[in-house]
C-alpha cells in the first residue's frame, strides 16, 4: 500500500457538484440521504462495483466529482430500480446513476474501453441516426471499439443460434421519416446548448 493521505479535506470538495447532479437527475432530495444502505443491499450489482450506491450518494453530496465521474458504478447499474422504489427518503437513485453517466459521457471521463458505456453510446448513435437499432451493426461496433476480438468470436455460437431460430436482424433497420426525426433531434440539441 502506498503511504499517502487518505482523508479528503473540505477545500478539496467541489461544492457545485451536488447541484449539477440534482439538476441533471431531477432528483432534488439527494442531500437528505440518511446513509441507511437500503440501496446497496437491494442492488444486485453492488458486489461488483468500485463504490456501492450508498457510497456514491455520499460522494455526490460531498463533492467528490472526479471519483464519481470516473467510477464504474453507474455503468454497472442494470436499471432494475430496486434502490429507487425502496429508498426511505424517496431519492431517485437510479436516475442519479443515469445523470452521472451522462455527465461522464459529456466530460469523457467514463472508463473508455469498458463494454457498457461503449455499447450505450454506439446504440444511442445508431438509433438517433436511423430511428431503430440494428443488432449486428451494434455488436460489430462494440467489439471494434473495445478492441475485443475474442469477445466477438465467443459470440459466434449465440449468433448462429439466433440465426437458426430466425431471431436476428441482419439488415440495417431504419424508419421512413428520418428527416422528421433529425429535425426534432436538431431542435432539442440547439435548445439544450
Amino acid at each position: 500500500m502506498k503511504i499517502q493521505e487518505k482523508v479528503i479535506n473540505e477545500e478539496d470538495m467541489d461544492r457545485t457538484f451536488l447541484n449539477d447532479i440534482k439538476e441533471a437527475s431531477g432528483s432534488t432530495e439527494i442531500d437528505i440521504c440518511i446513509q441507511c444502505g437500503t440501496c446497496s443491499s437491494s442492488c444486485p450489482m453492488a458486489v461488483y462495483m468500485d463504490y456501492t450506491p450508498r457510497q456514491i450518494i455520499s460522494m455526490v453530496k460531498n463533492g467528490m466529482r472526479e471519483n464519481v465521474l470516473k467510477s464504474f458504478t453507474p455503468w454497472l447499474c442494470a436499471s432494475c430500480y430496486s434502490c429507487q422504489v425502496r429508498c426511505p427518503m424517496d431519492i431517485n437513485i437510479t436516475d442519479v446513476m443515469y445523470a452521472i453517466k451522462r455527465k461522464a459521457v459529456e466530460k469523457k471521463t467514463y472508463p473508455s474501453r469498458f463494454a457498457i458505456p461503449v455499447m450505450d453510446k454506439e446504440m444511442h448513435k445508431i438509433l438517433t441516426h436511423n430511428g431503430r437499432s440494428s443488432e449486428v451493426l451494434l455488436m460489430l461496433k462494440l467489439f471494434l471499439k473495445t478492441r475485443n476480438l475474442i469477445g466477438l468470436i465467443k459470440m459466434a455460437p449465440l449468433g448462429l443460434n439466433l440465426f437458426k431460430t430466425g431471431r436476428i436482424g441482419l439488415k440495417k433497420e431504419s424508419i421512413k421519416n428520418k428527416k422528421q426525426l433529425r429535425q426534432i433531434l436538431k431542435a432539442v440539441k440547439e435548445e439544450s446548448q
Binding site: K101, V105, P117, H124, V188
Partner: peptide
Amino acid sequence: DWNCCGATASPSVDEAK
C-alpha cells in the same frame, strides 16, 4: 413508422434526445 425507445442506452448518454 415507430422508432426505438432508447431503452437503457439513450438515457445514459443524452437526456434531451
